[in-house]
Design a protein around this nucleic acid. Structure first.
Lengths: 139, 139
DNA sequence: CTGTATCCTTAGGGATACTG
DNA sequence: CAGTATCCCTAAGGATACAG
């Protein structure tokens, strides 16, 4: 696995070949915006990902170096998953997806506060979140 | 078709249930950044989408009101596809995907000029492109 | 708890032929 | 040109059981 033949070298296609499915970005979301870091926490998300899919996507994300997997020193047998810098850099993508859905999905659960924050001071907010993620990565 | 049950009301999930596949966003890209507007032009893209997939995705995009389909007045029997405002509003998402891939894909085909433009003056560039798209929509 | 493994079903998608 | 319609295969994914 890993290097299948690419359909093209288009940057959109590059992203799609990693994230072009219904689950991968939800895992990234959980790590980036919900503070989740373990297999068990990912399983508990409301979308109810299956165990085999979760394991598969975590492996793909790790292989793509978006996610780093390490033994959890605190709990011994547990693993912990962290976003790499490459993963942290997906933050703007996630934010724009959220903004778009907030605008067009009538059932959206996005907090208005978040939307106004982004509109008012996008750069500052991005920096705040990503520096928090960077601290997690360094820890 | 149309309203299958949603996995969740999360905004990321909303976007994923429309774009969470390997093809849909490539069609949006063609309309947004490559000036394509017809079935035949979409078929010619280097990723080689199959006719049935293309027809299916165009129908889904139309149903989601991201794309508007109209008879082409100039050529009679031809149809033309345009991005709606909802579609145009995907521009920031596409741009961030491109920026991310430009940074991490060694084979990326993104022009450096584009990257520096976005970094230097993101808002201006977004406005330029989207106002051009709006003119197309109005035409 | 963190996964693997298996089974089974459905959805995605490539190839190609055909129609208005 | 703009699609439909098939056929057929593979990948995706849900359910559940099992293992370290």
């Amino acid at each position: 696995m890993g290097a299948q033949k690419r359909k093209s070298d288009c940057p959109i296609n590059y992203a799609l070949e990693l994230f072009g499915d219904r689950w991968t970005l939800l895992i990234v979301r959980d790590m980036m915006l919900k503070g989740k870091h373990s297999y068990g926490e990912f399983l508990k998300s409301e979308e109810k990902i299956a165990t085999n899919i979760l394991a598969d996507r975590l492996a793909l994300l790790e292989e793509a170096e978006v996610v780093i997997k390490l033994p959890d020193p605190a709990h011994g047998s547990k693993y912990i998953y962290k976003l790499s810098q490459k993963g942290i850099d997906l933050l703007p993508v996630l934010v724009e997806l959220i903004m778009w859905s907030a605008k067009y999905d009538p059932d959206s659960t996005v907090e208005k506060k978040f939307v106004t924050q982004v509109k008012k001071n996008r750069e500052t907010l991005l920096k705040e979140i990503s520096s928090r993620l960077k601290e997690e990565l360094a820890a």
